[in-house]
Each structure stands twice: as structure tokens, then as C-alpha cells.
């Protein structure tokens, strides 16, 4: 049996707009992935700790508060400190185009802006997950 890709869907920051996070969680599930959903108001420390304990392949972050430039790099930095830089980190939400290069420099593999179909996220994950799902 093929091993499912494990994804942590997390909402850092204080905003409560989890429509996108929930839609993505369902879409990933329907694409056969195991989604660990952690709820609102997660600190970078909590997200990294959960990612490690759940041994996920992907961390998918959703944020609409505008705090992405502060919180996303903190998460990738903590992952690196824990030796978990093989986890694919992606982000989504209201993120201006001009912030994307900065975030990519800081280890966020891809940013999905509003209007991205869930199928694009699924395809991206399948193509880029580092610990490949194997037989």
C-alpha cells in the first residue's frame, strides 16, 4: 500500500479566518493525504513541535493577518534548528507579491495567493515533497 503524504495544516498568527485552511485540509484529505489540523492561534514553537512529533512531510501555513514576514521565517528557522529542514514548508493567504521573494529566501518553498485552486496545491505537494511516498 502506498504511504500517504502527511501534512500539518497550521494557522500561525492571531487571525481567525480559517475558511482557506479548512478548505485546503479537506481537499488534501480527498487527495488521499493524512492531514493533521491544529486550529487557530498557533505560535511558531507549537507548529514546529507538532510538525516534529507528527513526523510530517509537509507544513502548510495559512495566514491572513499580515504577520507572515515575522512568523513564517521564524517557523523555518526553528525547523532548521531541530534538524527538520527536509520538511516542505508552503504558505498561503493574503500575501502581497512583493513579500514572496523574502519569504522564499527564508525557506518557504512556495506561496499560494488568493484564487489558487486547491488542485494546484495538491499537485505542488506531490511534485515537491522531499520524503517521497513509497511503496
Amino acid at each position: 500500500m502506498e504511504r500517504p503524504i502527511r501534512v500539518l495544516v497550521a494557522k500561525p498568527g492571531l487571525d481567525g479566518h480559517d475558511r482557506g485552511a479548512k478548505v485546503i485540509a479537506r481537499a488534501l484529505r480527498d487527495a488521499g493525504m493524512e492531514v493533521i489540523y491544529t486550529g487557530l492561534r498557533q505560535t511558531p514553537e507549537q507548529i514546529v513541535e507538532a510538525a516534529i512529533q507528527e513526523d510530517v512531510d509537509v507544513v502548510a501555513l495559512s495566514i491572513l493577518s499580515g504577520a507572515h514576514n515575522t512568523l513564517f521565517p521564524k517557523i523555518t528557522k526553528l525547523l532548521k534548528e531541530r534538524g527538520a529542514e527536509d520538511i516542505l514548508v508552503i504558505g498561503g493567504g493574503v500575501i502581497p507579491e512583493e513579500d514572496i521573494p523574502f519569504l522564499k529566501e527564508h525557506g518557504i518553498a512556495e506561496i499560494f495567493t488568493p484564487g489558487t485552486p486547491t488542485s494546484a496545491v495538491i499537485e505542488y505537494i506531490k511534485a515537491n515533497v522531499k520524503r517521497l511516498a513509497k511503496k
Binding site: 500517504p4 487527495a31 488521499g32 489540523y37 507538532a50
Partner: peptide, 18 residues
């Protein structure tokens, strides 16, 4: 049907995470 799942029990154990 899909082989996928949403695992949400951690939501209620947030303080224990760290």
C-alpha cells in the same frame, strides 16, 4: 474512499504540544 484523513485531536491538546 480516498485513503486520506483529517486528524484534529491536537486542537484540544494545544498546551501539551510544547
Amino acid at each position: 474512499f480516498t485513503g486520506g484523513s483529517i486528524l484534529g485531536d491536537r486542537i484540544r491538546m494545544q498546551d501539551l504540544t510544547t
